[in-house]
Every structure is written in C-alpha cells, then in structure tokens.
C-alpha cells in the first residue's frame, strides 16, 4: 500500500513542473481576463463598472463579430483541405526513397521561417491589380477576363489570404506528418507487399490507421493556427477590405486598444476560446471514434 502511494506520488512529480508553471503564468491571467469580461472598462481608468453579462449579450448581436468568425472559419476550411492535402501529399512523397528528397524537405520549410513582412510584400506584388505577376501571367495566356485586383475585390480577397496562409503553413503539417510516417515500422510495408497489396491498399490498410492520431493532431493544430491568423492579414490588406477580411483576433485587438473597450475585448476572447474548445474537442472525439471503428 505504502509502495503504491509512493509510486503515485512519483507519478505526480512527472507533471509537477508543468503544472506549476501553468498555475503561475496561465491561471492568474486567465481568471483576470474572466473577471474583466464582466465589466465596462477602457483599459486605463482606475475605476471599472460591473455590468454582468451585458458584454456577452452584446456579442450575441454583434453581426461584424460573427461575420469575422465565419471568415476565420472559411480560412480554416481552406487550410484544412488545401494546406493539409498538400502537406500529406508531399510528406508521402518525401517519405519514399526518391532522389533529392533532402533538398525538397529543406525548401518546404522556408515559408514558415519567412517573416510575415516579406510574405506580405511578395504576395502583394504577385497579386497587385496593375503590375502584378499573376495578372501578367493570366493575360499572357489569354485569360483577360480573370485579370483584376485580387486583394481589393470582396469576392477574391479572403480566398487569396486563405491560400497564402495555407502556403505559409503547410511546412508544419509536412514535417509533423513526415515525423509520423517515419515512425511506421518498415516491416509492416514489407509484409503488406508480400501479401500482394498495391500502393493504394498499403496506404489505406497500413498508413492510414497508424496515422490517425497524427492526422487528428495536425487537424487540431491547423484549426487553432488558422482560426487565430491575423499578422498575415495585416501584412496583406492593412486594416482590411471593409469588413470582408476581418477575423476574431483583429476584432479583439481593435476593441482592446483601438476603441478602448477592454471588458468587451475580454468577453470576445472568452467566447472565441469557447468556440475553439468546442470545435477541437468535437474533432478529437470524432477521430477517436474513427480509430475504434
């Protein structure tokens, strides 16, 4: 009995440092933000007015806020499909013994390293309405009807941002999935090949089942990263095209220092966090179900 207690205590020691840091640097700010979400406060005055859940009620009716949530969702959907599809494809290719894979592996990680300033400048240049490379390319192959200003047209602005975001982020999915693929024992492939499996069968029978936890993780990371994107948006379209390119984080920052509504910003932050938690945990449960099936 004593031994078991001791063993449990030792087990606690493993998580103790993490919990300590978490308790000091996360819990206190979190509680404070929670408290501030129920006041009307400009972030400066020594006095704040307690208004209960009024901020949350206002958010429910804030159309621009929910629009911005939808924009982030749209960017996330494109990232989930386009970015992760590309990342998986490239990871599968680089997992095989092909020539030059080291070279590609290094290059694919360039976009995540690049500063948003550079990414913004380069893509603005590519997408520019007057001198842009993309428009030049389109008109040289005869697609004049498609030539327009990509970033100041509400129909294309958000999609362009989503694609650039996916391009900048696929390197992460790529290395995580590559790490996952590399942990699959090669003998399993050999065994499958001996059994006469084709490459698709090997993928669906060997790779896929073993990769589900990694996929699930990449999906959660993509959701978190894409829902919170904002530096790239500022770098590409400044303070935004009307309200067509605004996202929750930009609304929160705007409310906090722009219009000095600190309490409201904190309430927005909490609603946003709740939504992220709901999405992520649903996704997690979902992938656990698939794994069991």
């Amino acid at each position: 009995m004593n031994g078991k207690l001791k063993s449990t205590l030792i087990n606690y020691l493993f998580v103790l440092p993490a919990v300590l840091i978490f308790a000091i640097f996360y819990i206190y700010p979190f509680l404070k933000v929670f408290q501030l979400s129920m006041v009307e406060w400009d972030g400066i005055l020594p006095t704040m007015q307690f208004i209960g859940l009024d901020n949350f009620k206002e958010i429910m009716q804030d159309k621009i806020w929910w629009d911005s949530m939808w924009h982030a969702g749209y960017i996330t959907l494109i990232a989930l499909t386009f970015q992760n599809g590309l990342a998986l494809l490239l990871a599968l290719v680089c997992d095989r013994e092909i020539k030059g894979r080291n070279f590609f592996r290094v290059l694919f990680f360039v976009p995540p390293i690049l500063s948003e300033v550079v990414v913004g400048l380069v893509w603005q240049w590519i997408l520019d309405g007057n001198y842009g490379i993309l428009n030049n390319l389109l008109s040289s192959i005869g697609l004049h009807s498609l030539v327009h200003n990509w970033l100041s047209d509400p129909k294309t602005a958000l999609t362009c941002i989503a694609i650039v975001h996916s391009w900048k982020g696929f390197g992460w999915g790529f290395i995580i999935m590559l790490a996952g693929l590399q942990t699959i024992p090669r003998q399993l492939y050999e065994a499958a090949r001996v059994d006469g499996a084709g490459s698709w069968q090997m993928f669906s029978k060997v790779t896929l089942p073993l990769m589900i936890p990694v996929f699930s993780m990449v999906v959660i990371l993509t959701i978190l990263g894409s829902m919170q994107v904002f530096v790239l948006i500022i770098a590409m379209v400044g303070q935004g095209l009307v309200y067509h390119t605004t996202v929750p984080v930009l609304r929160i920052l705007g409310a906090m220092t722009g219009s000095s509504r600190f309490g409201y910003a904190c309430a927005q932050g909490i609603i946003f966090g709740l939504i992220l938690i709901i999405i992520s945990f649903t996704q997690k449960k979902f992938s656990e179900k698939i794994k069991q099936a």
């Binding site: 309405g129 007057n130 200003n149 970033l151 100041s152 590409m236 400044g238 935004g240 095209l241 009307v242």
Partner: peptide
Amino acid sequence: LYNGIVTMVNKTAEQLFANER
C-alpha cells in the same frame, strides 16, 4: 483612384508615388 487603394497601407502608397507609379 489607384486600382487597389482600399487595401493599401501608406508605406505601399509612398513607394508607388516615389517610383512614379
């Protein structure tokens, strides 16, 4: 108006004017 002025930050505007665009 310059095509795309609504999403232009001032530094880009300055760069365009300086380069006679």
